[in-house]
Amino acid sequence: MGGAAAALDYDAELMLRVKEGDGASFGLLLEKHRSAVIHFLYRMVQNHAVAEELAQEVFLRVYRSRSTYEPTAKFTTWLFRIATHLALNALRDGKNERGQESLDGSVAELPVRQISDAAPTVEQSMVYRARLEEVRRAVSLLPEKQRAAVLMHKYEEMEYSQIAKVLGCSESAVKSLLFRAYETLRARLAHMA
């Protein structure tokens, strides 16, 4: 937690410098959190173009809010609250429909993970793509809030308390969301063992 506390101070300090007109500090925040925000949004909406557009909007809102920023919460909590809000709105507006329709095709665009030193065979690539497609589909079928909770828990390694603040619910509600989500995923992905 010491590291997290230090990160809180550093990010909040940077944001306070942005508030005072220091553009370079905004650049540092962007550099530090850009990938996490884009990856979270991509896994939420499962569409490259929409995820990029939403990530731009997230950082634009951060910049716009600089004059009223107060470090009342962890910077990443605030950042992911904006990102989650935009992602949930986009999903409700059906902005990601193009991505959902082309789910099969878009898997081919992703890099194939190389497990050993040797290049993967065609068969290994096909198996990998099929597994990846199953994982994506299993996650995309989760209810929106469960999906957001799983992505923040698994990929962003957030604590229950932080996820609760992002989603605007209690810690026990987050535990319940995660338990149900992982229960569904265990059932859908059991054959992958």
Binding site: S35, I38, H39, Y42, R43, H48, E109, L110, P111, R113, Y128, R131, L132, E134, V135, R136, A138, V139, V150, K154, Y155, Y182, L185, R186, L189, A190, M192, A193
Partner: peptide, 15 residues
């Protein structure tokens, strides 16, 4: 079963 889910999610790399 949870370990299987965890490892499956690990394979999903973002672009």
């Amino acid at each position: 079963a949870q370990q299987t889910v965890w490892e499956a999610l690990d394979t999903w790399e973002a672009p």
